[in-house]
Amino acid sequence: DEIHIHFNGVTIEFRGLTEEAKKALEEAIKRGASEEELKELARRLIK
């Protein structure tokens, strides 16, 4: 299970995320999180 985020022309790929983690990332994107914020969020979620 993986998710691809297209962000300002950059694709960020995450693997092994739970549904909750995906929802958290989607919410962050909707509120306009920066690419760095998304990566940091993903790091926290994957652990």
Rank of each mutant, 00 (worst) to 15 (best):
R15V: 10
K23D: 07
K39Y: 15
H4R: 10
H6Q: 07
E27N: 10
I3V: 10
E37F: 08
K47A: 15
I5S: 01
A33N: 02
A42G: 02
E2C: 14
A21D: 13
K39E: 05
E26A: 06
I3Q: 06
F7N: 02
A24N: 04
A21I: 14
I12R: 00
A24W: 08
L41V: 02
E19N: 09
E35R: 06
F14W: 06
I29S: 04
E36N: 08
T11G: 02
H6R: 04
H4F: 09
K22H: 06
E13A: 11
E36Y: 11
L45H: 03
A21V: 11
S34G: 08
A28H: 04
S34I: 03
R15F: 13
R31Y: 14
A28T: 03
S34L: 05
F7T: 03
A24C: 07
K22M: 12
A24E: 14
R44P: 00
E26P: 00
R44K: 08
F14D: 01
L38K: 00
T11I: 13
E35F: 14
E36S: 08
L45D: 00
A24T: 13
T18I: 04
G16C: 12
R43P: 00
F7C: 08
T18K: 07
L17H: 01
K47V: 15
R31G: 09
K47G: 15
I12Y: 07
L17S: 01
E40Q: 09
E13W: 15
T11D: 06
G32T: 01
A24Q: 13
K47R: 11
E26M: 13
I29P: 00
F14V: 08
A33I: 13
G9I: 02
L38V: 11
E26D: 09
K23L: 12
D1R: 09
T18F: 04
I5Y: 07
E40T: 09
E35P: 12
D1A: 13
E19F: 14
R15A: 09
N8T: 03
I3D: 06
K30N: 10
G32A: 03
S34D: 08
E19W: 14
L45Q: 01
S34A: 05
T18N: 10
E36R: 07
E27R: 11
E27D: 12
I5H: 03
K39S: 06
R31M: 11
F7G: 01
A21P: 00
T11W: 12
T18C: 09
I12K: 01
L41Q: 00
R31V: 05
H6E: 08
T18M: 03
H6I: 13
K39H: 09
R43G: 02
E27Y: 15
E27L: 14
A28F: 10
I12N: 01
L45R: 00
I3T: 08
A33H: 03
F14N: 01
D1Y: 14
L25K: 00
A42W: 15
K23T: 11
R15H: 11
R15I: 10
A28L: 10
E26I: 13
L17Q: 02
H4S: 07
L17R: 01
G16Q: 09
H6D: 06
L17M: 08
E13M: 13
V10K: 12
D1W: 14
L17Y: 03
F14K: 01
E20K: 08
K22C: 04
G32E: 03
G9K: 02
